[in-house]
Amino acid sequence: MRWITEFLTSSIGKKLVMSLTGLFLISFLIVHLLGNLQLLISDNGKSFNIYAHFMSTNPLIKVISIGLYAGILLHAIQGILIALQNKKAKGSKYAVNTNANGSWISKNMALLGTFILFFLCVHMGDFWYKVKFTDTLEMITYPGVDYQVKDVFKRVAVAFENIWIVIIYLVGLVALGLHLIHGFQSAFTSLGLQHKKYTPIINIIGILFSVGISLAYAVIPLIMYFSKLSNY
């Protein structure tokens, strides 16, 4: 069994952990987006709230969500540790800094990641924490639904009335998009999945995905903010 610890502590083992947790989090981003786009259905939050209820009560989802939290933590902690180790391995920095040999993004993944983590805390504190651990949300019943659900939609709508919160989200999403631009294709390289024919395709998909998913997420606070404005 020693091979497992040896592998996980090797540099490539650590990369593998980053790569697999990263890809797992990417898959979560897709699911999360599909759910959240229901915020934009004009049914006063009915579908979204029912969906939110399902997500917080379904036992299978609960199990998966534990995996998700673990994934986030592992990705973040491992990432920070690697960044610290790399800083030590680099020693001192050059007097002249250049991005002529590599993009700013790829050289600042840890910075972007930390920023995303910070954003995630804000985001989860705003919604996840309030939904799960406080009674500040109103309960609501919908015709045809025989159980009460929390009005998460309202909480979201209220939050996105605040221009500052919208800005924080937009900045957070820019960081996410940048992180993904490098992270997506990097995950494949770390797994050794590189091929002269397919890697260029993966790279294009990676960029399209990173930009696309960030934009799709950004649409939600923007639409909600501006539709509120037009309501007044």
Partner: peptide, 27 residues
């Protein structure tokens, strides 16, 4: 240090050895 696939190595290599080598080694 640990590789984070920046690619500066391949750009600066005076013999232009590409980063594909790293992926192949990972595999």
């Amino acid at each position: 240090g640990k590789c984070s696939n920046v690619g500066a190595c391949g750009v600066e290599c005076p013999k232009e050895i590409p980063m594909d080598n790293i992926a192949a080694m990972n595999r």
